[in-house]
Design a protein around this nucleic acid. Structure first.
Lengths: 206, 206
DNA sequence: CGGAAGTCTTGACACTCGTCAAGACTTTCC
DNA sequence: GGAAAGTCTTGACGAGTGTCAAGACTTCCG
């Protein structure tokens, strides 16, 4: 292969990947609005600037499209949660910042979060997504673990629970707040904040 | 009032209700195996001893069928969770019994539990189920609250968290265990047990 | 320019879905 | 027994689905 064709093919690959990502972003927007069960390929295409046929030009089938979306979503998740990890100098400050950030993203990015829970639930019934969902879930658990360990370190105390327990507890609070906030319960967000504030110290040994 | 509901109201109520319940049970079985997204009325009928047309004789439309199923499921939920409330005489005994029961139902009734989370998630996208789901969720929260208050009383200590926080925390642990257990993670159930055992005391004031 | 490769649209296909009407079968009751 | 009411099946409908092939349009490069 000559140098020229190599450059060309590389450029085409880049453009190809770029469009894939673009279509996945459109798909994510549609998915977060309608949910997995009610989102069709035509609906996704209609919310993009392309026709429905192009989806099969860039993705083999629906499963590959959704899987690609989930993986792209994961990257977005990581950045969002990583912003939560503040450069706190005291345990109390970290606790407050973390609680506030969780509450904020629960409110602002609610649609994306509910999509995540929707897809994680699909993995309970469909094998296709399970591996990717497990991987994302592990990433989120590690993210929580980083915050919790930092909190413990700043507190000068040891942790009393495992990584998975800490994640399960906090994720439960978050999911509950997400649901109730979407349902119009105005106490959901304050409850999330106080819940997180109360829970973090309980993860440490007394 | 539609023609269908008019016809329905003229029927012999008891037998009619009985068959409705029977069809709902079939539907619940199918739903718990396939999930909401992939369950069709024809599939439900095929897993019962009737044809698909009968569903529209007993239910106005799909939404009414699913709603009825959810409500029937709720009753099942209550009984299952109420069995968990042991006649414990000590805090430690209650804690152990509760953890063991949660672990057991997580393993044995996994399909039904994942259906519950599936439907609760649907309520995040579809208004139709939201009211019923909220009602069931409140029932579950109260059930957890009963156990937690009993635990606090037996411990002779006051509770440090609200009802919703306690429910959110424990539900998070349970949901995580359900997911990982279904995915084949053999540490899921032991982790759930130790997680519950560790968490309960932390709900009390120190 | 002109062919080639890449990109996108259009329209069709086979299928499944929820819904419902027509009628057959069963039970009830006089 | 027989009419009436209740119950269930069958078959069809229109709409929507994922998929894909044929071709039009665009970009690239000798």
């Amino acid at each position: 292969m000559t140098e020229a064709t190599d450059r060309i093919s590389r450029r085409q690959v880049d453009k190809f990947a770029e469009r894939r990502s673009q279509l996945a972003t459109s798909a994510l927007r549609t998915l977060s609005e309608l949910g997995y069960a009610r989102t069709s390929l035509r609906e996704i295409a209609q919310n993009s600037e392309f026709s429905h046929g192009v989806l099969h030009y860039y993705f083999r089938d629906k499963v590959e499209l959704i899987t690609y979306c989930v993986k792209q979503y994961k990257a977005e998740c990581v950045t969002r949660y990583d912003q939560i990890v503040a450069t706190a100098e005291s345990a109390d400050q970290l606790r407050e910042t973390f609680g506030a950030a969780l509450t904020l993203t629960c409110d602002e990015d609610g649609s994306m979060h509910r999509l995540w829970y929707d897809l994680r639930n699909q993995a309970l019934f469909e094998d296709s997504f399970r591996a990717d969902v497990l991987e994302i879930d592990k990433t989120l658990e590690l993210m929580i673990w980083r915050i919790v360990t930092q909190y413990a370190e700043l507190s000068g105390r040891a942790l009393a629970v495992s990584s998975s327990t800490a994640y399960g507890l906090l994720d439960g609070l978050f999911q509950q707040a997400l649901f109730r906030n979407l349902a119009g319960d105005e106490t959901a967000l304050p409850d999330l904040r106080t819940g997180v504030t109360q829970t973090l110290p309980k993860l440490l040994v007394s």
